[in-house]
Design a protein around this nucleic acid. Structure first.
Length: 152
DNA sequence: GCCAACGTTGGC
DNA sequence: GCCAACGTTGGC
């Protein structure tokens, strides 16, 4: 079982939306590095930190669980979708999605600034590399981060 | 809105 | 393959 961090803009879809819906497709990943992780390494049963970006309270908002294996993102085949990719075909999909289920909403969003200020978290991919919407989290990072977040 | 840090595109 | 131009992400 592996740990991940997925970024999302809560104005589009955030932890509250996931909580009310229970389960949702995580799609629209259009970055090759993120795609490769999603397709090759993320598996059903893995756990995911939900990170809110480009919003008022930037930080980790809660936890989701991966509840499907990765599959071809249907949006790439839909000409009406903003995620349509004319170079993709069902025989040769380029982009992948998976389903996530709600697990937990933290009492407060754990702010990015707080994460940066923790020496044990300063090596997170989140801090070291920007612009990656699917990224690995170590067990030690997961343990500390969730502990801090649950303290509010 | 600004801007830094990337990623992508396309001419050559 | 190089690299300039352009586009996107995302914190602040």
């Amino acid at each position: 079982m592996n740990y991940w961090l997925f970024k999302t803009e809560p104005d589009e879809f955030g932890i509250d939306d996931l909580q009310s819906r229970g389960r949702e497709r995580w799609d629209g990943i259009r970055n090759y590095q993120a795609r490769n992780l999603l397709r090759d390494q993320v598996r059903c049963g893995d756990q995911v930190l939900i990170y809110h970006s480009s919003c008022k309270a930037v930080g980790v908002a809660g936890i989701a669980g991966v509840v499907s294996e990765p599959y071809a993102d249907p949006a790439q085949f839909d000409p009406d979708s903003k995620y349509f990719d004319p170079k993709a075909s069902p025989e040769a999909p380029r982009w992948f999605a998976l389903d996530v289920g709600f697990v937990e909403k933290f009492p407060r969003v754990l702010p990015l600034a707080r994460i940066k200020s923790q020496p044990q978290l300063a090596e997170m991919v989140l801090i070291r590399q920007g612009r990656l919407s699917v990224q690995p989290v170590t067990a030690a990072e997961w343990q500390l981060l969730t502990t801090l977040a649950r303290q509010g």
